[in-house]
Amino acid sequence: MILELDSVAKTYRTKGRGDVEALRPVQLPIPEGSFVSLVGPSGCGKTTLLNIVAGLLPPTAGRVLFEGQPLAGPSRDMGIMFQRAVLLPWRTVEKNVMLPAEVFGQEPSSMQERVAETLEMVGLTDFSNALPQHLSGGMQQRVALARVLAYRPKVLLMDEPFGALDEFTREAMNVELLRLTRPAGITVVFVTHNISEAVFLSHKVVVMSPRPGRVTGVIDVPFDDPREIDVMRQQTFTELVFEVRELLNKEESRSGVPAEVEGA
């Protein structure tokens, strides 16, 4: 296991309203090279959980083991991507991809080659000198992906990275994401509220529910790699999507609050 969530929980103390349970204890092993999605409606604690794994948010109970060691704060072996591309608008595409290397104190000249290589991989070589504002949303996310891949993290944490993109671009990005991470053996933890996206990408779909945020089920996805978009045509795919949906709906009827999840 490259990552192991050991009874990780988060409670927020608020004035007047007492403690708010954002995340009930989660037990989750994540094998090296696997792709795990966290699916659920808003408020189910999926982003909280991701930020804890990233070391950006301390858990109130439990611990995260990264390569067997308890995690204390962010690690340079993990990379994170957000819903926004979060590019620095005053830097060119190339300089944005160079940012982590600069922060790590690496010699820029030694990084040049790897940056160029990564930009090539995401198909942005022609745009290395462009400013982010001149790129479309999909291309901006591609730069963000290149930025994180360029320093070769072992784990990639993604918080609804394609949530703001249109359906077509999102699909293309999903295929690309698989192409870039699977052969490299990168472990991915992927937060989304899109069920079919989760099933298409993952080895394991972790279904979460709100009020209080908790894990309500883990579904294994048996498709072989490499996957192409036509996986979605298979009967098994539809059944799995339905199964996830079922799990979410069960929770919905239990709490009496409709879950806001995009379906397949």
Binding site: P74, F82, R84, L99, P100, V103
Partner: peptide
């Protein structure tokens, strides 16, 4: 300063 920029830098242990 956009919070996610700060978070990004924090994730890099800047």
């Amino acid at each position: 300063v956009p919070n996610d920029m700060i978070q990004l830098m924090r994730s890099l242990k800047a």
